[in-house]
Design a binder for these strands. Structure first.
Lengths: 386, 386
DNA sequence: TTGTAAGCGTTATCAA
DNA sequence: TTGATAACGCTTACAA
């Protein structure tokens, strides 16, 4: 149409409106609206004609107008609260987002994405988005054990889904009574896979989560089966809900097998390679170092493997390593790392679907993602005797 | 106010509008609008009162209404066109986005982020966003050597900034005449750092780019200085503009030093660890393998180091390795990798600022980001004799 | 089945 | 310095 370049830049083509369509199709604006929104009250004939004209003109509803007239904003929000430096090497988020969008974009819904420094800023942003009517709902990631966001969102009435799960899932006790091994613990027995839990663990928001407890149990099955009895879990940030779940599960599993809690335990970090390496060094310096270490992310696992190499400790000969979350990283190191593989884009899809369900007035519920599987590679083996 | 929980979820608090403010402050709606938008035509007194009331009510402009009344949408768009599987381990994008948002959020501008499969989908999305008036402008990433996006965006009149630079920067010839070494090449001589180039290399859109040519020259300075004469560059996707620039620069630099083009050259990959490893294997199998390899990203560099380890080739004893782009990865491997460090969030900030400038009617121009520096670590050293 | 008209919350143009 | 009033593009009663 217009010649590209400066001219086009200054004088953009006018976007067609339903008025244009109405005129061209020889009907009223409301007829156009009905026709394009699949609403009854317009003949097949008119509907078809209107559709054709809209197609010809390349019409797309003006999102602002649609939002203004009581309809939805046509956008969801996702806030990532992390200090800028912490935006490390992690494929998790991009994959999650890609899964989320696969579902949202099929419904022509946009995703507002924002990276902020901290939780307070995140809360302020929710308030602003709500007041501005910018989004129809939000996905809350990195849930904490003590999280102000669900209450805020519930109070605002902004539909939301917590991605990553509650601090204490359904039947799980927050903390088992100290001296009581829980072989009969119902928690990790048989949670219904991919089915909504009977009681929502979080009273305010729908939740999509992964069964970290069972995943940890799988890792322990693997290591215990190989003969490991001194297993340390180098966890991520202590405030995160899934960290708490994993730590809890490790305890439960250790107790169930009658393992010594001093030899099977967790330490928390900030997920960085630096703290992962540091924690590893401390552990290996101990009198009776662990024979296996489980890292809460791939970066720390690689950092840990590197520390072992530095000290001449053979992996998996003297030390087995497991990474929670797989990535290219785990496959390029030597030895290649045994990793817990999960379908992150699938998790994102699930979260987006649940958010859409909430928007459609669905019930408050808790949905569980696919159970991850352990991909055994070269970094885990039978521990040395003793 | 309202009790949280189900009730709040169903009956969200009503958001205040300027009408509420007008009533409460005892003025007209237009007075409120003027007062809140810092426009003249209202007394100091009224302005202050209106402001106070707005504050009390927690008012925020309804973005849809604002957008509808001819104002801006208050959002920018960013599309990442990548097959889902390729969303690998890369901190680049999250850091870029975080920088972009630092600038945008200071102006209350949201970022619409979308991951799509390919360039066609990306173009379709721009059209849709434009038709929907969803965004005021977009940031175009991963520019290609033959890129349909600038023309499309210019034709639509959608303000945009290309992030990552043109295929052939300013004075750079697209391809030097074959047999003519270019010691006198003005291209890499002294491009003005961080200042707009005299002539926009791209006739349609403003561009923010990094001087890959100079960066490559720095890497070559380092390696050549150490004594390397057989240097291979394992590049990324051949279609990307910066890949072309780096390849071109390597040629120029090789010629300038009278190096043999058969021994100093580039090979392209898809950026994956798999192709990075594969290319490395092929190179090391050659009769006269390179003594130094430059990888276009951190993942491939680590994969390459891993291949060397696999074959018992000491790094840096027999092979030096340089990674283009630093990350935790480069610091956790053994030996730690020499890397080209750049300020990615800073680059994002620059891009966002430029986009705002374009929106404010600024001139079409090309802005250069900070020149990256080479962080020499343990993976580069003097090559073995011969 | 269709058209008319009101309203969504702003901004912008007028008179007063 | 103010206050009506008309856009903006769409949805949706309601009337024809």
């Amino acid at each position: 149409m217009t010649a590209p370049g400066e001219a086009a830049r200054r004088k953009p083509a006018r976007r067609p409106t339903i008025k244009d369509i109405a005129r061209r199709a020889g009907v009223s604006e409301s007829a156009v609206s009905f026709a394009l929104n699949d609403r009854p009250g317009v003949s097949q004939d008119t509907r078809a004609r209107v559709r054709r004209v809209a197609e010809e003109l390349g019409w797309q509803a003006n999102s602002a107008a649609r939002a203004l007239s009581g309809e939805r904003a046509g956008a969801m929000g996702l806030v990532l609260a992390r200090p800028a430096q912490t935006l490390g090497v992690e494929s998790f988020f991009l994959q999650l987002v890609s899964g989320i969008q696969e579902v949202l974009s099929a419904r022509q819904i946009a995703l507002l994405f924002q990276v902020v420094e901290d939780l307070d800023t995140e809360c302020a942003l929710y308030r602003r988005w709500w007041a501005e009517r910018r989004v129809d709902g939000v996905l809350v990631v990195d849930p904490r054990t003590d999280d102000p966001r669900p209450e805020l969102l519930a109070a605002l009435g902004l539909p939301a889904v917590v991605v990553g799960g509650p601090a204490a899932p359904g039947p799980d006790p927050a903390e088992p009574s100290a001296g009581e091994p829980s072989a009969t613990e119902p928690a990790t027995a048989e949670p219904s896979a991919t089915e909504p839990a009977a009681t929502p663990p979080h009273p305010l928001l729908s939740t999509v989560w992964a069964d970290d407890a069972k995943a940890m149990a799988r890792i322990l099955d693997h290591l215990y089966g190989l003969g490991h009895r001194r297993i340390v879990h180098i966890a991520g940030l202590p405030g995160l809900a899934h960290t708490a779940r994993r730590i809890q599960s490790l305890r439960t599993e250790a107790d169930r097998r009658g393992l010594d809690r001093r030899q099977v335990h967790s330490v928390t970090t900030d997920y960085s390679d630096a703290e992962g390496a540091e924690a590893t060094r401390r552990l290996l310096d101990a009198a009776r170092p662990p024979t296996a270490i489980v890292y809460d992310n791939d970066v720390m696992a690689v950092a840990g493997a590197s520390v072992a190499a530095e000290r001449g400790i053979p992996v998996p000969g003297a030390l087995s390593i497991v990474a929670w979350d797989d990535s290219a990283l785990c496959r390029v190191t030597h030895p290649r790392l045994t990793a817990l593989v999960r379908d992150t884009p699938g998790f994102g899809r699930l979260a987006a679907q649940e958010l859409l369900a909430v928007l459609d007035g669905g019930p408050l519920r808790t949905v569980q993602g696919e159970l991850p599987h352990l991909e055994a590679r070269e970094s885990t083996a039978t521990p040395p005797p003793g």
